[in-house]
Design a protein around this nucleic acid. Structure first.
Lengths: 350, 350
DNA sequence: TTGTAGGCGTTATCAT
DNA sequence: ATGATAACGCCTACAA
């Protein structure tokens, strides 16, 4: 068939298609790109399409990017991908970007911050149309500045300390929901176990806790313990609480992984949950069902958070007027009751 | 300062650097790229470097890719990122690629297989130097074929049904390690709960189980139950086992997430682990410590698996002679003993 | 309805 | 030791 025209091992280019179809490259280009205002005879169009198909033509994305000065690629800078919550956010971002025709470049915030040559390669001009940064509580202001100076950027769950738009969860509402549940059960001696001290998400949840507790029991003690986002840090915080003279009757934990550590430490200390202490975790991860005591949680829309961050960025890229900040209030935090919460000891005695 | 030369809002290009430094673009290019065999006067070199620095010059990666016909980017096609095991593999791939100077494009295998326009965009010529496919047990032969026709590809933990190099774990050894532990405790009535029927990793682990069981107890029954990789499927498999007249004294579960479901179903049925049934899971995930009963596991080098897959691909790209397949035997599977295993009921009674 | 010209930013080749 | 020229593959004017 077409072999005798001098089949090359190399992949066909637009010129090859045009040549074989007996047209010029611009025509081939516009037909293949479905340019709406191109007027070609039907048979010409058909011929081009057919040649492209038989040749297995595939446009060169790099050349196209260079020409159009856009790459249809967005960068996603993440920290701590081992956290199931962060994975969900990632899926939200990636899925939305893919649906919008963008591919996703993934980078780790620690590595990016530590390796400037990798950062340069990542930000390499033209490769990325925009970047979404989910860098947690790390002190990555420099990284954020470096990135946002080069391309449009959006932050996720971070302290948008300035000009970079941010998508975030309704952390205050989450803290409120968790605490309201405990208060509804009759608790008033409630401890809050937070993430890292600087983490803005943890601070928001803490504020929700404080607000609700003050509203319901103005005299109650605000009792905050800082931990971190890992199970080990949760266990360590629980041990700190256990070393005090009196136990609270309930604990709100700012994160489900941390809560797993809290539960395990309580079990190891022989404390019965929920009989002696109730525990609520924030984030309804799959493993909540399988912990030492199945964990009552507050479900937050993590996937939607990622999708919203992507929307923010893609909207900006499309030149649409885009809000500088987005708080995900729909769906709202939802309480998922399992075995780890019950009325307080005192109440059950009375 | 340099403003009066007509400072533009646009980012500086190589030509700008060359012009300001009073040299031609090729020279600027070669100096900035540390071309070893370029002979320039020291002051010229210094001038170029200085201008580049003050201008904040950053090469355009797209133009460079076009010219060099390589992108320094690799694609990672993954399935089921919600699994913590897969996340670890991802980190292995991404980390290794980043260290080698490659950025990583992430795609979801389901979405890629379902959306051909996204696939074309992903494979868009020139964008990717190679692809790593971790597509699980899905019937993605078509996807694998499509990808590997376009760029060099490497498979992870898949059935390298043909010409595509593959990196995989030593699943047989993992199954052996888990089963040997149980046999050492005195068990002989051991059930194997697998992943999806077609999953090659599950089949390998099953083979390890069968080998060891036959070697130790030639008369023992090979008892295999198919489940899947989710906690729900594990729970469902456990319920199936519970509905039989007799319980085995021990269960090997091909996956830690599945094992979590098994443990929870056993607990809900009032079966005591490890007193009535011992359970070993494969993969030492963080949550093993926090399950209803902490789970004895076999730790497999998932991060190294990802890194090895990356090495395979990068080696191929570098033109090095590269093995077609790699079995990760170092580090070997390691048994991590926790609370979910003990001698069998009969033995503890005698 | 179709073709020609030019350039996106870089690097490789050859000349000087 | 440095410069001129061309080309990577594509797309957007504009011309015919």
């Amino acid at each position: 068939m077409s072999d005798q025209t001098g089949a090359r091992e190399v992949v066909p280019t637009l010129r090859d298609v045009a040549k074989q179809a007996g047209v010029s490259t611009p025509i081939a280009s516009r037909v293949l790109n479905d340019d709406p205002d191109v007027r070609v005879r039907d048979d010409t169009r058909a011929r081009i399409l057919e040649v492209a198909a038989t040749l297995g033509y595939m446009p060169n994305g790099v050349a196209r990017s260079l020409r159009r000065s856009r790459s249809d690629a967005i960068g996603l800078v993440m920290h701590n991908l081992t956290s199931p919550m962060n994975t969900t956010v990632l899926e939200g971002v990636r899925g939305r970007c893919a649906s919008a025709g963008y591919v996703t470049l993934l980078a780790d915030s620690e590595q990016l911050a530590a390796d400037s040559s990798h950062l340069r390669s990542f930000l390499s001009r033209g490769r990325l149309d925009g970047v979404i940064l989910h860098v947690g509580h790390g002190y990555h202001e420099q990284l954020i500045a470096d990135v946002s100076r080069h391309v449009p950027a959006v932050l996720v769950n971070s302290d948008g300390s300035g000009s970079v738009p941010t998508a975030r969860l309704d952390d205050v509402a989450a803290g409120r929901t968790a605490t309201e549940h405990l208060i509804g059960l009759g608790h008033s001696d409630i401890c809050f176990v937070g993430g890292p001290k600087e983490a803005i998400t943890s601070l928001g949840r803490q504020r929700g806790y404080e607000e609700v507790l003050r509203e319901a029991h103005p005299a109650a003690r605000i009792d905050v313990v800082s931990a971190g986002w890992t199970d080990e840090m949760g266990a360590e915080a629980a041990r700190r609480i256990l070393s005090r003279p009196r136990l609270p009757t309930a604990i709100v934990v700012a994160n489900a992984v941390t809560a797993a550590g809290v539960l395990t430490a309580l079990r190891q200390a022989g404390i019965s949950v929920p009989n002696e202490v109730s525990v609520v975790g924030i984030h309804d991860a799959w493993f909540a069902n399988h912990l030492a005591v199945s964990l009552t949680t507050v479900r937050l829309p993590l996937f939607e958070l990622g999708a919203m961050a992507a929307d923010l960025l893609l909207g900006t890229l499309a030149g649409e007027p885009t809000p500088a900040n987005a708080l995900i209030v729909d769906p709202p935090p939802i309480l998922v009751i399992r075995e780890s919460t019950a009325p307080p000891r005192a109440a059950s005695l009375s």
